[in-house]
Amino acid sequence: MNTDIFENLRLELRRGCLILGVLAALRTERYGYTLRKSLADSGMEIDEGTLYPLLRRLETQGLLLSEWREQDKRQKRFYRLSDEGTQILDRLLVEWQSMNASLTEILKEPENGTRNSILTSS
């Protein structure tokens, strides 16, 4: 198996999911570090080098709002979903659920009788 190809495809697959994960997590206001921990606790590890540029991009696109505030005697930048972000997230979730349902259906189809279903075997 070509590790590079797998890694590239895995990253591509993860990229979209990370955006969904970040938007969903920011329905509750959080700052970068706690957001990263909360995503990691849910099984979605994301490194700082990916998270912070992503947050800035989403904010530039108007999907997030941010604000510097003091907490525990330190200035922290808190992020939350904007109204537009909420609408976009709802639409993306519908899209994702639809794709997930389709994929599940596709994976259930037998492959020339050699394998029944990846889902049932896993």
Binding site: Y31, G32, Y33, E48, Y52, R56, W68, R74, Q75, K76, R77
Partner: peptide, 12 residues
């Protein structure tokens, strides 16, 4: 960017 990166490092 630096302020936020600084905050992340201090939290860690």
């Amino acid at each position: 960017i630096l302020r936020e990166l600084s905050e992340e490092l201090h939290s860690q």
